[in-house]
Design a binder for these strands. Structure first.
Lengths: 260, 260
DNA sequence: ATTTTCGATGTGTGATCACAAATCAAACAT
DNA sequence: ATGTTTGATTTGTGATCACACATCGAAAAT
């Protein structure tokens, strides 16, 4: 043996994740944060350029996003973020109510971590503050953190993954409503209130009440989104089906990932 | 215009799907049919070789399967079919009971197609016959057809997709139990009976009963699988695996069901 | 006999190139 | 002014190559 394991305890392990993985996580986060608009066309080469890599890793990452239905092919040679389609979105909401309702019920009945309640309260407080301050990015992130904190307490890791891919599809749509500040603020006000109900239900291990609170939360935000889209579709754009031959996407191209 | 569309009405439209898509569908079907064992290592080049293409399309297809958790990386440079992990599998069963139970309930309450019942009865009959004849491939396919025929009647296409990716994960595990003929035959016998209950429930639009039947079906097959795996892990017998993937699949086939 | 070493082989990853098809804009013809 | 065509550009797809690392087998050293 040449040399023993050097014990320079000053340096730790190095990030050895693959480029493809980092690209995937970046795009995923961007989708969740609403940096892409529903229906926005994307290009592998374009993304590679912005991210500072070759098209290859982006290609793999996009393939995964396609499998998760977050990205779809709008034609033989074009990709776009999944557009808003009323019927489809409504279906996803129904599914989410079932799945996330089940997760909440299970969390309320089986949770163990004694710090859970305090953590939920803290997160909910931060949502309220961020919303009041007009910091919708933080409020959105906080909302996501709250829900997943609850679902994690259900003790079914695979459920977390499934729900998270569902959020990946509803994410851009929810985020697109951020254009309407007033609506967004009221959405969070209601949300915080419902979250409090959920916390209380979990505290007293009332599974049915927890399920009711979370499903109500999902339904409420869905109604808001629907109202927003309906109002917005008066002029700018309406979601179009996955049929080909659609030109789509107004010039209102939102920022699609800035720096490298 | 150079030339009109030639009207040789003898030839129809040509399959213009991409190679990647066909590879994906092939692998997916193979997974569902049980041509891969849980935990079996696979190689991109090997699959490409077998399928007669370059590694490129396989790479994209596998990326999608990874996103669906049907394939996972077992190391920095190696891939394998998702192995059987008891806790994980149990979680998937719970999720499936929720989702497929919901789909069944909704199908029973909202179905419209007047031919639905007859189609279900026909499929169930074919399962029974195939099982009696020892043709488990057909019986397995029939079972899948039955379930998805029901879920399709729920009128929520996105739900179908989600459930189908869940089957993609439980598929190889279910199929691996085919080594035990006796168990498999009894499994189908019980299944056919439960399916009849489900049909009856749907016929009289009894949502709760339909949900009960389907969840029972899932739970029953889960118990059988669990019993099989438990027995198989005690005595790693050399069952024949129709693994058509690449070379690989070392002698440790008996342990393919456990983990790693 | 057991352990170690080391080389051959195979792996996923990433980059680069080729290509047909789709898109867009300017120039055309009406 | 308007609808059509055409040509340059960009797209995803697929093939090929290079590379670092993992794996495994045989030879060597203990």
């Amino acid at each position: 043996m040449i040399v023993d394991a050097q014990k320079k305890s000053g340096l730790g392990p190095v990030d050895l994740t693959t480029v493809q993985e980092r690209v995937y996580q970046t795009l995923r986060l961007g989708l969740l944060k609403g940096e892409f608009l529903p229906g926005e066309t994307i290009s592998i080469r374009g993304l590679a350029d912005v991210l500072g890599t070759s098209p290859m890793p982006v290609r793999d990452a996009v393939a995964r996003l396609i499998a998760e239905r977050a990205v779809e092919q709008s034609g033989p040679r074009s990709l776009r973020v999944a557009p808003y389609v009323a019927a489809e979105h409504e279906a996803y909401i129904r599914i989410r109510m079932q799945l996330e309702g089940y997760a909440s019920e299970r969390a309320a009945l089986t949770w163990k971590d004694p710090d859970l309640l305090e953590r939920l309260r803290e997160i909910n407080r931060s949502i309220s503050e961020a919303s009041d301050a007009g910091d919708f990015d933080s409020a959105l992130a906080g909302n996501q953190a709250f829900h997943f904190e609850v679902y994690a307490a259900a003790g079914l890791p695979p459920l977390l993954e499934i729900v998270s891919t569902l959020w990946l599809r509803t994410g851009p749509i929810l985020a697109s409503a951020r254009q309407d500040d007033a609506l967004f603020e009221r959405l969070f006000q209601i949300g915080v209130q419902i979250h409090d109900d959920a916390i209380e239900a979990i505290a007293r291990r009332d599974g049915a009440a927890a399920r009711r609170a979370i499903t109500l939360d999902i339904r409420a935000s869905h109604f808001s989104i629907r109202r927003f889209v309906k109002r917005a579709s008066g002029e700018p754009n309406a979601g179009q089906g996955s049929s080909r031959g659609a030109k789509s996407v107004p010039a209102s191209r939102g920022r699609a990932l800035e720096q490298a």
